[in-house]
């Protein structure tokens, strides 16, 4: 943990590695990677976070292969793989 504080946490967003500060959420990591779309709506439109507090479900991403995780409610962990609708097959 102390190590992570000094060096930041390494995560992958759509396959690209980046370093994020401690207490960074998955949604913030997606923004840091320059990605604005988290998921596609039922009609296929791009959507990103709205409420920031786990209510709207718009921030859903695939985390470590697990579909439909709320990006704004998930803290980044070292080695976490985050995939948005660009990459994940079913998001």
């Amino acid at each position: 943990m102390a190590d992570a504080k000094r060096n930041g946490i390494k995560v992958w967003v759509n396959g690209a590695e980046l370093s994020v500060p401690p207490d960074c959420t998955a949604a913030a990591a997606v923004a840091r990677a320059g990605v604005t779309m988290h998921r596609r709506s039922v009609e296929g439109h791009a959507r990103g976070p709205l409420c920031g507090m786990g209510v709207c479900m718009e921030c859903r991403v695939t985390i470590n292969g697990e579909l439909h995780q709320r990006g704004c409610q998930t803290l980044c962990m070292d080695g976490m793989r985050i995939e948005t609708a660009e990459v994940a097959s079913d998001a």
């Binding site: 913030a28 840091r32 409420c51």
Partner: peptide, 14 residues
């Protein structure tokens, strides 16, 4: 985003 929504996301590292 929401007003508090963007603020919360920013606190979370955005």
């Amino acid at each position: 985003m929401g007003a508090g929504g963007l603020q919360t996301l920013a606190k979370g590292g955005l």
